[in-house]
Amino acid sequence: MSELSLFLGCVAPNRYPGIEAATKKTFSKLAIELDDLLGASCCPAPGVFRSFDEETWLTLASRNIALSEKLDDDVLTICNGCYSTLKEAGDTLKKDPKLKETVNRNLIEIGHEFKGNHDVRHVIEYLYQDIGIERIKEMISKPLDLKVAVHYGCHLIRPLKEDGSELVNGNISFFDELVQATGATSVDYEDKMLCCGAGGGARTAILEATLKMTEKKLHNMADAQVDCIVNACPFCHLQFDSGQQDVNSRFRKNYSIPVLHYTQLLGLAMGYSADELGIGMNTTSTADLIKKIKD
């Protein structure tokens, strides 16, 4: 019986469906069933909707969690923004009975209730904590000889800090370890924890300024001569992939660093083809990376 429902969010299913496909394939290989979360909405996005109206943000987030609770599942997110919203909204409501009552007064009108009896997980910390590096290594049939720039993303780290997780005490390495488990090498680069630039509604409001942050990050990754960027968030993915071409055209640069979500990297190492994982569907070319993996 499944214990997890897959929360898709917006960017993964609608812009980078390869991430959805890769998640489903890798979890199938790990023999972990994922329930579909029928009718789930935008999480809603933490930087934008949370800053417009907190009650709206909490109410829509709690509806998404309530859908998962009805299936007796924890929520599995594949996006840092969704993780931030659902984890933080859920934890806030669990701690604040009055707020929970306010939210449930709205939810009951549409036949739902937020109970607060399930948790919200991010695919990266779930794989690390519940599956474990050793089990993942056992599932690798095609070890990858790649140099990788790991990008954690701000909203993977923040909810873990709020939760007091030991994963973010001192030197943070859980994502790097998962990348290394595929045979790839996580290469250190300058200012590794810097934001991709996209979050908080900034990409929508002031694309040019966010691209300057992205350019700084791409510059540091290129200096480390990596084969690809590996992220944990479709929105960071969008900023690095599509944004990379914007950086090139606006700032007269010539970056060409392929961008993968971790589930796509894991899928490759489990023997799935780049086509099955949608890796060729990016804006920034992944042809050289695919060729290197085949060689």
Binding site: P13, E20, L38, G39, A40, S41, D53, L60, R63
Partner: peptide, 21 residues
Amino acid sequence: PSTAQGSDDHLDEIRTLLHLT
């Protein structure tokens, strides 16, 4: 995808909530 966009019933739920708040 199996999300709200493809279902009028689910979209109605979301619009109701957005009205209530």
